[in-house]
């Protein structure tokens, strides 16, 4: 394989660190169980509140909302600045025009309380989006 034949090997600390990670991954199933506990609570909560998660059948949790680009940036800023919630935003051309995707990645280190805070925040910002609150805003102020 050319990328490995003609390139330096992974440094030893990474290799040893990876051995430790693999060992934990194998011997601590509670890490994975926790990931799924959080992912399930998050996705059930979002679906119960009427959010559109499309085709996910894994822990990756995309929340699809309708809105233009300026609304997508405004909602992301609102989540960060006023709710202290940091998630990624995906817009056209990765997804169709007129849609935005707020992508939530649950981890084993999150708690059910983190999920609750996030569900409540999402309900609020989705309500604002529907009411047109973000239409007049843009990200230029950043």
């Amino acid at each position: 394989m050319r990328s490995q034949t003609f390139a330096k090997a992974l440094p030893m600390p990474m290799v040893l660190g990876l051995k430790k990670r693999l060992e934990l991954l194998k011997t601590k199933p509670e890490l994975r169980e926790n990931l799924w506990k959080i992912a399930t609570a998050l996705q059930n909560g979002l679906r119960d509140r009427g959010f559109d998660l499309r085709s996910t059948n894994t822990m990756v949790t995309p929340v699809f909302l309708e809105g233009e680009l300026n609304e997508a940036t405004a909602i992301t800023m609102d989540l960060r600045e006023n709710y202290g919630i940091f998630c990624s935003i995906v817009v056209y051309p990765v997804i169709p025009k007129g849609l935005m995707e707020l992508r939530i990645i649950p981890t084993a280190a999150h708690t059910l309380e983190d999920v609750q805070v996030t569900l409540d925040a999402f309900s609020e910002v989705a309500g604002k989006l529907k009411s047109g609150f973000y239409k007049e805003q843009s990200a230029v102020a950043v």
Binding site: R21, L24, C87, S88, R103, P106
Partner: peptide, 21 residues
Amino acid sequence: HLVWSLNNYLGLANHPEVREA
């Protein structure tokens, strides 16, 4: 911030045994 953007799925990034290793 409450961060939901990292693919640190199992929380290993800052696990004490990982940091130590």
